[in-house]
Amino acid sequence: MSSIQKARPLSPHLQIYSPQLTSMLSVIHRGTGVFLSFGSVAIVIWLGALAQGPDAYVQFQSLLAHPLSKLVLLGWCFSLCYHLCNGIRHLFWDVGAGLELSQVYRSGVVMLVTSFALTAAIVFFAVQKTGGLL
């Protein structure tokens, strides 16, 4: 590539804009999606341990009992709630609904509150079920 081509101006990119709710929610949607993809590995390991037998399953469960694992599980829990709620928001946009700027901001806030509430509800049930988060 010649030096003239290299010096060509770049169009404004992410770092030039001040953060807005809309752009942040979009970035987080991608982030949670990527993070959730790593969770698929955990699901495969879970099913593998289940098929392997009781010993492997106990081992898997003790791995999950580690506080760090619980933190990751909490992260996956929130990511799933967020990606699910925001994904539904995207599906509405795909059929052309709710695209006015005021509607986009309103649905963004509603989505955020809903995903936090869902996360809290799931954690509540999980704690009740297993008798203690950590």
Binding site: L50, G53, P54, Y57, V58, I122, F125, A126, K129
Partner: peptide, 12 residues
């Protein structure tokens, strides 16, 4: 949520 915390027998 149903299966978590249960043993191998229950999960299988």
């Amino acid at each position: 949520l149903t299966v978590m915390g249960m043993d191998h027998q229950y999960a299988s």
